[in-house]
Amino acid sequence: MFLNLDKVTKVFKTGTFGGQDLHAVEDVDFGLTEGEFVSLIGESGSGKSTIGRMILRLTSVTSGVIEYRGKDISEFRRQSLKDYYRQVQGVFQEPFSAYNPIFKADRVFRNVKDEFFPEMDNGRWQDKVQDSLGAVGLNPDQVLGNYPHQLSGGQLQRFLIARALLLDIDFLVADEIISMLDASTRIDVLNLLADLKEREGLSILFITHDLSLGYYISERAMILYSGRILEKGVTEKIFRNPLHPYTKLLMASVPRIDKKWEEVEAELEEKQSDIDSGCVYRDRCSFQEKCKQCEEARPELREVEENHYVACHAQEED
């Protein structure tokens, strides 16, 4: 495991005086091996971005440990943090806000040069930039020297991936990076990721609210609901044999890749509530009559078949 999350929890203080606790992420455990492509799937507000941001050290962890190559990332300071970012980078959902609007888009490259390669001479740096732009399928002459608003969403996202590649990263957190792109570019960016994994051995945490996308692209998947992982394992197994009632519901609602997530969300309109004890999913669960424990105890993730885990009391009984 080169990235490992152990009982990672994030509690946000909300309300006017910070008096309320919002459990955005709770007891999340998972690991990633080198070169792996893992999907984190969950509807909006389930805590996906918070997990990504904690891995990227952009949000602090309330409790639990995130380890990268055996080191607790919360202990990284200055130089060690910089070394971490040399290997681990993120790209987010909203391409425009990732750029400072008053500067040219290339500034994101300039910052990487200033911070990581201050010594490198400009000629060599330019070659490096051209190479990584080429690797993400952008024509340097077309994109360099432009302001963010002069580029398309797809170009901006590729630009950010190119920025990450300048660093020879091992691990990329891709948080809904295609959800704001138009249909034709989405597939291209997706294929670019798959390609990078193949060619560069990049590990990717692919965050998405779209079940079919997760299936399309990843080797392993995790289903997140209200901050908890309800089911995780080899993508094939989860999709062939969904065990959790929530996953089943998702599968039933998204039978084909062409179905829009918006339509699915309309079907799943009930709100996720912050449930203090018992199963987070019990209000919506279709098995409810089956087990009494759901109100009392949080179900733990259990391996039901090889490399396929589910957190559901109903699955424990038989």
Partner: peptide
């Protein structure tokens, strides 16, 4: 809270 601040933070700046 804008993402470009996160991008800068992810250089260890």
């Amino acid at each position: 809270s804008r993402n470009f601040i996160d991008m800068a933070r992810m250089t260890g700046m």
